[in-house]
């Protein structure tokens, strides 16, 4: 297997506890788990809490399946920044004879990639990616721009890890703001504060940090330094397991990157700016389980009142 990230002893122990209590369900692949009923009740409750907090924004709801047209993905620049994290969908388009050969090789767990061709789809790397081309298709933004609630979509990152807080497929609860630069920057900063307050309300000890995306390679180190120097990304971190706190929410100001890529403009033709925020719903669920115990029916009333009002 390519590059399995190791877990610290307490991360490994936490994973065993989660599996023993049926909160996560083993599939045999690191970072890919089923979710038990108890886990989902917490995850969905936090998702609804975010909806309640976001209600005054009056954001337009949009939901997309966890795949992205390959053409949109190729335009996004993701392969320049994160070639190591992307997941591409391949499928079979061969003859009957090739289908027999493919099955034979696959059955023996051999390499059957030679029978596969790239499809027009990739796995969604972040829940906001389908939003930008959809908005661009409508034409110029209305005055004041738009707020979009992209929901809690499954996203994929190719980074197999034994740490239960580093999943290959997880739910990102995303919100997107498109508009004039000042409007977008203000929205991003106000959500950073609101999100910290939400996490505090459910008993999580969150603190904000200037952050950078996990860009690839030496060029990536420079992109990360640029991102930090311009404070384009903030994260909220909480203790889960392991020596370092874990990022559970991020607040990202893209400037005109996505607007330029997909052609999103204001009514006067000037390029729009965009920002997004994402809550890592599984990580927040894990943080809650770690802080308050594995049985949510025994959590402090002050926390459960927030999650199940």
């Amino acid at each position: 297997m390519a590059g399995l990230l190791a877990a610290t002893p307490d991360q490994a122990e936490f994973l065993v506890e989660l599996l023993d209590h049926g909160l996560l369900i083993e599939t045999g692949e690191p970072g890919v788990y089923g979710r038990g009923g108890g886990f989902e009740r917490i995850r969905e409750a936090f998702d609804r809490l975010v909806s309640r907090v976001a209600e005054p924004d009056g954001a337009e709801a949009m939901r997309f399946p966890p795949v992205l047209p390959r053409r949109h993905f190729e335009a996004s620049g993701y392969l320049k920044s994160f070639p190591h994290l992307a997941g591409t969908i391949f499928s079979f388009e061969g003859t009957e004879q090739e289908a027999i050969e493919q099955e034979d090789v696959a059955h023996r767990h051999g390499d059957w990639s030679g029978y596969q061709r790239m499809t027009d789809l990739v796995l969604v790397p972040a829940a906001c990616y389908p939003v930008y081309p959809a908005i661009a298709r409508r034409g110029p933004l209305p005055p004041g721009g738009l707020a979009i609630d992209a929901g809690g979509a499954y996203v994929f990152r190719h980074e197999p890890s034994a740490d239960p807080a580093r999943l290959q497929m997880f739910h990102q609860r995303e919100m997107v703001r498109l508009g004039e630069p000042e409007t977008v920057a203000l929205w991003r900063n106000s959500w950073r504060d609101r999100a910290e307050e939400v996490l505090t309300r459910v008993g999580l000890d969150a603190h904000p940090e200037v952050a950078a995306d996990p860009f690839f390679g030496r060029a990536g180190r420079m992109l990360a330094a640029n991102q930090r120097a311009q404070e384009l990304k903030f994260e909220l971190l909480i203790p889960i397991a392991g020596p370092e706190p874990t990022a559970v929410a991020s607040f990202n100001y893209h400037q005109d990157h996505f607007a330029g890529t997909y052609g999103i403009t204001m009514a006067d033709g000037s390029p729009a700016h965009t920002a997004c925020l994402g809550f890592g719903l599984e990580r927040i669920t894990l943080g809650l389980l770690r802080s308050h115990g594995l049985d949510h029916t025994r959590w402090p009333a002050a926390v459960t009142r927030q999650l199940w009002p």
Partner: peptide, 28 residues
């Protein structure tokens, strides 16, 4: 742009046959 500055960094390395150490891979 940030991406252009990365291309510039790589082109400088090729032109001058050097490798910027990690500590120099920053905006300033």
């Amino acid at each position: 742009t940030s991406h252009a500055s990365v291309n510039l960094m790589l082109a400088l390395e090729a032109e001058f046959d050097i490798e910027f150490p990690d500590a120099m891979l920053k905006r300033s």
